[in-house]
């Protein structure tokens, strides 16, 4: 399986996507700096505590990487069907299940790892900056940190699961735009809401969507052995 994953990465030149990841993270960082530290002239600041700052950050990062996941799904799965290279792939003496699983593992891990890294690194930078400018009031305690870390970890797992949902829509017509649009709609759904209430913040919703995502992944693998490739 590791070998298949390595081959997929090589085949699709996925190293190149890391540049995109870097740019995305820089953009998120710039935006967060803008809204947290610069945009403080308004009477009531949006970010009154560290928890608020992190909350905002998480929404951004998750949205970004769920869309990234859709791009990866398009590259690894949808385009393989569109370009007909799937016929090539499925003529190899390797079970179709394994071939597709390798692809989905890449997408899942990519989303998971990037969310965790981005949230911790960008969060860390924001805390560091605040140390000097003291815009966000309050102290960051160890207990707060550990709570946040758990949150980062679990929500990243949910997001990675959710990131697989667009596959279901994209596979119906083997369409890249459909895959991406599904991801965008999904993102706007889970990050919609106002002030305190956000759909994606409700653990139940996240868990359900994550399970749906995994289910989609399972379905796409389950039927693959008997499907005709025309």
């Amino acid at each position: 399986m590791l070998k298949l994953i390595a081959l997929e990465i090589r085949k699709n030149k996925l190293a190149g996507i890391l540049k995109g990841v870097l740019y995305a993270n820089l953009a998120i960082l710039a935006f967060m700096i803008l809204v947290v530290f610069i945009d403080q002239s308004e009477a009531d600041s949006t970010f009154v505590s560290y928890a608020d700052v992190f909350e905002g950050l998480y929404v951004f990062v998750k949205s970004t990487y769920i869309i990234f996941a859709a791009i990866l799904l398009s590259k690894l799965v949808i385009e393989e069907y569109k370009n007909n290279t799937i016929t090539l792939l499925f003529m190899y003496p390797i079970s179709r299940k394994k071939l597709i699983t390798a692809k989905l593992i890449i997408v899942f891990l990519f989303t998971l790892v990037n969310i965790v890294v981005a949230e911790i690194v960008i969060g860390g930078i924001l805390v560091g900056i605040n140390h000097y400018v003291n815009v966000v009031p309050g102290q960051l305690t160890w207990s707060m940190l550990s709570v946040e870390l758990v949150k980062v970890g679990t929500s990243a797992v949910y997001a990675a699961g959710i990131g697989l949902i667009p596959l279901f829509f994209g596979m119906r017509k083997k369409s890249v735009p459909t895959t991406i649009v599904a991801a965008v709609l999904l993102v706007s759904l889970i990050s919609s809401g106002f002030d305190e209430f956000r759909l994606g913040n409700m653990a139940a919703v996240s868990i359900v969507l994550a399970v749906v995502g995994m289910g989609v992944a399972y379905l796409s693998i389950r039927k693959i052995e008997t499907a005709d490739i025309d």
Binding site: K11, T85, L88, M91, P93, S95
Partner: peptide
Amino acid sequence: TERSYEMLKRMGCIIEYPVFYDKL
């Protein structure tokens, strides 16, 4: 059978149109 993957080792094929990973 559906899962006769090993047999594919002993074949070499072009079906329909030669497809490649064409950025490589």
